[in-house]
Design a binder for these strands. Sequence first.
DNA 1: GCACATTACATAGCGCGCTATTTAATTGCA
DNA 2: TGCAATTAAATAGCGCGCTATGTAATGTGC
Lengths: 151, 151
Amino acid sequence: MSNRRATTFSPLQLDSQLCFSLYSAQLAMTKVYRKLLADLGLTYPQYLVMLVLWEADGVTVSQIGERLFLDSATLTPLLKRLEAAGLVQRQRATEDERQVVVSLTAEGRALKRKAGAVPEAIFCATGCELDELVDLKSRLDGLRERLTRSA
Amino acid sequence: MSNRRATTFSPLQLDSQLCFSLYSAQLAMTKVYRKLLADLGLTYPQYLVMLVLWEADGVTVSQIGERLFLDSATLTPLLKRLEAAGLVQRQRATEDERQVVVSLTAEGRALKRKAGAVPEAIFCATGCELDELVDLKSRLDGLRERLTRSA
DNA sequence: GCACATTACATAGCGCGCTATTTAATTGCA
DNA sequence: TGCAATTAAATAGCGCGCTATGTAATGTGC
């Protein structure tokens, strides 16, 4: 009897954990992207950086980092790979030589066309209605916000 | 005029992408766990494996993999680290020597007590109501399911 | 019973994502 | 002015998570 409560409510059970659902949904999502992005020669984090640059070209490493919630230890080697792939260019800012400005090459800009098909393919893969996705997105944004605050 | 449609609906915009919210929420979540689990000497994926073992001790590598949606290339080195930490034991199954059975050591079982405080700490960090978490979890499980199917 | 496929796990190598640290440039203040 | 503090990026090293491949044990068909 004394262990009945522990049985009926056990927070250490894998199946009851939101975090595991978040974790494994993210892995599944990345797996779907991997196939789509292979055509573009991009990984998912690289794709995110390209999204930032397609919106606003010529930004610093830390600006990319703020947008994606990643720091230079992650971005520097990633950007070097994008540079080696001929998609971006990195150069020290003249007004503040601590900063590195990342710009798209012609090839990097051109890739945007090919990437145009990706969002719809992902949308189909989710099998969700659009408003369900919008709702889920805002919940996850709120969750990230609160988790970041408490960290 | 001709580019107005592209401006009003641009699926390549970072801010409109559910997947990025999923990605960054997961990173934020892992970051919160990192602090909590440091006391236990575990990483988040290692914690997941321990959750599986605390529920059902003495399972094969592939059984753990099915539960966590991970394969042996990920689990083998992770399990070796858990073994090196003295938390689990790995031994070939006698009835089928291809399989490796993973069991908890006394130390591994003992760690469950210390881990008992983790779920509530995470729950607080999410800042969510319980039913909101349950709802979000089921949506994410559904999403993972459909993404996996389409991959 | 023997070649063949299949299965379970391990290994190699790559790209994140992190902490901790380093280097170099800029800022700030006595 | 000079020198410490701060800032931006880079680097080192670790642990995933993946694809591709290898290896050994088990099944299967003839």
